[in-house]
Design a protein around this nucleic acid. Sequence first.
DNA 1: TCTACATTTTCTAGTCACTAGAGGATCAAG
DNA 2: CTTGATCCTCTAGTGACTAGAAAATGTAGA
Lengths: 159, 159
Amino acid sequence: MLAIGTVARRTGIKIPTIRFYEQEGLIEAPPRTESGRRLYSAHAVRRLSFIRHARDLGFELDDVRSLLDLSDQPDRTCADVDQIARLHLDEVEARIERLRALKRELTRIVSSCAGGKTAECRIIEALADHEHCAAPHPTPAKAVKKRRKSPKSSKKHRM
Amino acid sequence: MLAIGTVARRTGIKIPTIRFYEQEGLIEAPPRTESGRRLYSAHAVRRLSFIRHARDLGFELDDVRSLLDLSDQPDRTCADVDQIARLHLDEVEARIERLRALKRELTRIVSSCAGGKTAECRIIEALADHEHCAAPHPTPAKAVKKRRKSPKSSKKHRM
DNA sequence: TCTACATTTTCTAGTCACTAGAGGATCAAG
DNA sequence: CTTGATCCTCTAGTGACTAGAAAATGTAGA
């Protein structure tokens, strides 16, 4: 049985996040020592790794929940799992496509900079004027996802 | 001078979001009618369109703020603007790359399903075991960004 | 054994960029 | 004059964490 810090190191999930997952019911509340510290079994660690991996792959917590439920009932057909993954794959493909359109426009914008003053800066013009877009990029709802920013230090982002 | 609803329709930014931008200092507080309703000038509408477009392109509000500051001081060199856009382009390219790795792995996972029971489901196995990854996909910090979910109806997502 | 430091506990509140809803005032059209 | 659209302010909620406080506990070295 491992302490939470060890589990965190082993799974790459931060300590508060592990507690958060417990609170959200993604993992069971683990047994405790006499003094109240959490103790994790190898099984719990595997479950956490599963969650981590699924999250890395872009599954939302709700998706992860479904996946975990499915794997808890080993007589369900694999088709459900497959469907979740497949849906997700479609989303990923769509996202790649949108990002590529975005990249095209950004490239166009960046390369239009001639090193002058902002008064005649093409980037600002291009941003001010949606009409000039080469590619019809994402409509309101499907615009570019923003990253999370750490308060100090550098940005990290998941995509 | 236009009412907020008209501006919303014209820029594609929702009314509460316009007010939010005002509160965040991205746009000046507009003049009001006697009864307190906001009235926007053509200039304000252009500024909002600028914000909208930059947001669509994935710039964070802080980036947008810098861009706006820059465009407000027309004697600054264009280089600052270019740098922001260029940095952003780098991020977009990195994101595309990560998404492609992700797609490879998802494809592998999906295609491994043979229609059996979850007990022998490869998807779950694949998710449980990070080691089996074909491509070394994103490390903790740069995992896949999750989408925003509308409360009812379907997921929308910006990326 | 003492001390120092690391680790853990619970709790609350903050992040980003909005979005939703309540409850009320004001406006334009019929 | 009434109806319904639009607007106002305010608070609270979203997802998936992350940060910090204050206190208890564990462990390693002197």
